[in-house]
Design a protein around this nucleic acid. Structure first.
Length: 486
RNA sequence: GGCGGUAUCGUCUAGAGGCCUAGGACACAGCCCUCUCAAGGCUGCGACACGGGUUCGAAUCCCGUUACCGCUACCA
């Protein structure tokens, strides 16, 4: 068996959508798993809607996900000459014929048919035109399209890799147009012609293409080409069960990238939408594990809903597992954009930065969560969250006493290390007759401005002696102000 | 309307005739841990769309119904 060749064929009319990304991913996984090729074809024949930015956005999306493609990108628009030649060949071979009916006429007949008996189907009137009449009209320059002549009786079917046997009776398929009157190809022809030219062996795409498949199979046969295998993937829906669209919020992979979702999370999450390795398995997987496990048997038939809650959970899992060397630069870039520190400052003291990341990533679900939580550890001063202060400093005088005692005890800690700090603070709490929680609450707000943070000893360690003491002093000033104001 | 596809907890899924009193994960609730928040651990809530068959036995096979989705263009 030859090595499989698959392709992802987006039309560049928007950003890389999660549905498209999933289709690309499955094609890529299959190719990588079986040592085949994964090709890219840009279906830009709809020049009205196709844009260059869009093409670039799709490439960037794929690159971000790590879906690398083989060979040169194929631009469908560059192949119209072949598409046209294929259409002409089909006419010459008697598989297709010229149709002179105008769009307006067809529309009128369609309306009439729908009003009277229901379904409209082209009645093949132009197929009955005598050869000399066709020649005369062509010579006279009468515009015409090329229609494929669907063989009478029988049906066309295939063994779909995900759905099993599917077939369509020919009586339900009209003689479809394959070449427009301006000489440009219609989708089904272009796709088939290109897939043949690219030697695609497995066409894996969304199941919204199921009803195009019999037409394409007829084209393969009429063109004398071998059939590829087909696999039709289920759709991805929004929470309301409808096809994913803008109104569901973030649907472009770039949107998630900006929200702080990791590419490995996106790949992992998308892989599990419409595919399952079967049996019991750990859902959090690396891209390498996915490649190793991926196969067509695990492809599912049912449309799935894109659950952002689970996506975020999974991102937290990946955040917690990835190497700090990899996470560091990612977070540094976003912190720089946030204005907390420059990338250089952060990367200049890796041990400290990594320790901070270690403390924050366990409480984060996105890269942006880490950035937000890192703020108190970056600036010189801290702003007190109103709610946090209202709660932890509810009794300013009492809080002041606690913070002041802690300040004194801490100042005496010679090696600024947990071994010295822990007993010192515990002694303060004991002397004051309170639990450590009662002491750490006011301290936490003094040091971070927030109600929540990593453990007190970790916070002190990250801040360092000088900053910690300075913040306690600043808090004492603030507390004095509050005592005076009450 | 016609044709095609799909149908297990709210969501993602396991399940390929007896292993199912239907398993796991997310979400949700509670408990534990605990200086807060997370993380982690434990417990709970919660599904085979419906109706007929086939079979000793069906979530699993067949038929019908219903619901949902897709296609039905000189769009892709």
């Amino acid at each position: 068996m030859p090595t499989p060749r698959l392709r992802f064929a987006p039309s560049p009319t928007g950003y890389l959508h999660v549905g498209g990304a999933r289709t690309a991913l499955f094609n890529w996984l299959y190719a990588r798993r079986h040592g085949g090729q994964f090709l890219l074809r840009v279906e830009d024949t709809d020049k009205a809607r196709s844009t260059e930015e869009s093409t670039r956005a799709i490439f960037e999306g794929l690159q971000w996900l790590g879906l690398d493609w083989d060979e040169e990108v194929v631009y469908q628009g560059a192949n119209v000459a072949r598409h046209r030649a294929d259409a002409e060949r089909l006419v010459a071979d008697g598989h297709a014929y010229r149709c002179f009916c105008t769009p307006a006429e067809i529309e009128e007949r369609r309306k009439h048919a729908e009003a009277t008996e229901g379904a409209f189907k082209y009645d093949r009137r132009c197929d009955r035109l005598p050869a000399d009449e066709v020649a005369r009209r062509v010579a006279a320059g009468v515009p015409s399209v090329v229609r494929f002549r669907v063989p009478d009786v029988q049906s066309t079917g295939w063994n779909d890799l995900v759905h099993g046997a599917i077939s369509f009776p020919h009586k339900d398929i009209e003689d479809f147009v394959i070449l427009r009157s301006d000489g440009t190809p219609i989708y089904n022809l272009a796709v088939t012609s290109d897939d043949i030219a690219m030697h695609i062996t497995l066409v894996m795409r969304g199941d919204d293409h199921i009803s195009n498949t019999p037409k394409q199979i007829m084209l393969y046969r009429a063109l004398g080409a071998d059939l590829p295998q087909f696999a039709h993937l289920p759709m991805i829906h929004g929470t309301d069960g409808k096809k994913l669209s803008k109104r569901h919020g973030a649907t472009a992979v770039a949107d998630w990238q900006h929200e702080g979702i990791l590419p490995q999370t996106m790949v992992n999450f998308l892989a599990l939408l419409g595919w399952s390795p079967g049996g019991e398995f750990n859902e959090v997987m690396t891209i390498e594990e996915l490649v190793a496990k991926f196969d067509a048997d695990g492809l599912l038939k049912k449309a799935s809903v894109f659950d952002t809650k689970k996506l975020e959970w999974m991102n937290g899992q990946h955040l917690g597992r990835m190497p700090l060397d990899e996470l560091g630069p990612l977070v540094a870039r976003k912190i720089a954009a946030d204005g907390g520190a420059t990338e250089h400052e952060l990367l200049a003291r890796p041990a400290w930065f990594h320790a901070l990341l270690e403390l924050l990533r366990v409480r984060s679900r996105t890269v942006d969560d880490i950035v937000r939580q890192a703020r108190p550890y970056l600036g010189a001063t801290v702003t007190y969250d109103a709610q946090a202060a209202a709660k932890a400093w509810k009794e300013p005088a009492e809080a002041r006493g606690l913070v002041a005692d802690a300040r004194v005890a801490l100042a005496a800690c010679t090696p600024w290390e947990p071994a010295a700090i822990e007993p010192a603070l515990k002694a303060v709490a004991e002397a004051r007759g309170v639990g450590t929680g009662k002491l750490f609450g006011p301290m936490r707000v003094a040091l971070t401005g927030e109600a929540n943070s990593p453990g007190m000893f970790d916070v002190l360690g990250i801040l360092g002696r000088d900053v910690a003491l300075a913040r306690l002093d600043a808090a004492l000033v603030e507390l004095d102000r509050r005592i005076g104001a009450s």
